[in-house]
Amino acid sequence: MTVPRGNPLWSVPLSALTATQERPIFSAMRRPPRRAVAASPVEDSPAPPPKPVEALPPLLLVGAVVGEGDAIAILVNRTDQKVVRLRQGESLGGWSLTSVQQREVTLKQGERSEVLALQRPDAAAPAGLPADAGGRPTMPGPIDPSSPFAPRSTPKNGESDGL
């Protein structure tokens, strides 16, 4: 058997290139190959509707008091911003308080259980916003656009501040 030199396609006979003969490359009549036809889909039963997203409890844990015989969770109702105190075993809005620990509480609604954790004081206010005594972010007061900012050359009390 002789091994051809040069282009490896020289060893392929033209009779093996039937697609090239049927659709010549440089012909003005050249068209793309026919698309494959997909089989008709088998009719299936409709997909079940998506499971509705269950709402989280509308409560935010702001404190927990754990004593020897009693445990109380201090929560803020997110819908009306009112402070709510629940003892272990009490319910609010379909959610029952099942356990109270130092930094978290567990609420249960039917078979569903949610754990609310007490946020750290440094994570309570977003960076850059001043916070009040309770750690809640406060917004700065209105700015009067008619009075431009003018830095003082001397301190308010008239004494030099050493700068």
Score class of each variant (00 low, 15 high):
80 D>K: 01
16 A>N: 12
20 T>M: 14
31 R>D: 13
36 A>V: 12
56 L>I: 00
40 S>Y: 09
32 P>K: 09
101 Q>W: 01
70 D>P: 07
66 V>P: 03
66 V>L: 09
80 D>E: 07
31 R>N: 12
62 V>M: 10
27 S>W: 03
82 K>L: 14
93 G>C: 01
83 V>G: 08
61 L>E: 04
104 E>L: 10
21 Q>N: 09
54 E>M: 01
86 L>Y: 05
16 A>E: 15
31 R>W: 03
59 L>G: 02
41 P>L: 15
34 R>G: 11
83 V>A: 06
62 V>N: 08
75 L>H: 08
26 F>M: 12
45 S>H: 05
74 I>H: 10
45 S>T: 11
93 G>A: 08
75 L>Q: 10
95 W>D: 06
44 D>I: 11
56 L>F: 06
27 S>I: 04
42 V>R: 04
22 E>W: 09
77 N>I: 00
96 S>V: 08
24 P>H: 01
89 G>K: 06
54 E>N: 02
82 K>Q: 15
88 Q>K: 09
90 E>V: 04
35 R>I: 00
93 G>H: 07
42 V>W: 05
48 P>L: 14
89 G>Q: 01
65 V>G: 00
21 Q>F: 10
47 A>Y: 04
17 L>A: 15
37 V>M: 03
21 Q>R: 15
26 F>R: 11
16 A>Q: 14
65 V>F: 01
27 S>G: 12
59 L>M: 08
50 P>W: 02
63 G>Q: 03
25 I>W: 14
61 L>S: 02
66 V>A: 03
58 P>D: 05
69 G>N: 07
35 R>L: 13
55 A>S: 15
75 L>C: 13
38 A>D: 11
37 V>N: 00
29 M>F: 12
22 E>G: 12
84 V>W: 02
35 R>M: 10
26 F>W: 12
17 L>R: 15
42 V>Q: 02
88 Q>G: 06
92 L>Y: 02
90 E>P: 06
19 A>W: 11
33 P>Q: 12
68 E>R: 07
48 P>M: 11
37 V>I: 11
23 R>L: 01
31 R>A: 13
93 G>W: 06
82 K>P: 01
103 R>P: 00
59 L>W: 02
44 D>Q: 07
84 V>G: 05
101 Q>K: 12
94 G>Q: 05
88 Q>L: 02
102 Q>D: 09
32 P>R: 13
72 I>F: 06
90 E>T: 06
28 A>P: 13
83 V>E: 07
57 P>D: 05
53 V>L: 11
53 V>R: 02
56 L>P: 01
18 T>I: 12
39 A>W: 10
61 L>R: 02
67 G>K: 12
55 A>I: 10
96 S>K: 09
50 P>H: 05
34 R>E: 13
40 S>C: 08
79 T>L: 13
22 E>R: 15
69 G>T: 05
23 R>Q: 10
82 K>T: 15
44 D>L: 14
23 R>T: 05
79 T>D: 14
31 R>E: 15
64 A>N: 10
77 N>A: 11
20 T>N: 13
63 G>R: 07
18 T>H: 12
77 N>Y: 04
88 Q>I: 05
21 Q>M: 11
29 M>G: 13
24 P>D: 02
49 P>E: 13
37 V>L: 11
35 R>G: 10
67 G>P: 01
15 S>T: 13
99 S>Q: 00
73 A>G: 00
39 A>S: 13
90 E>W: 03
22 E>T: 13
100 V>K: 03
42 V>P: 06
22 E>S: 15
17 L>Q: 14
82 K>D: 14
47 A>N: 00
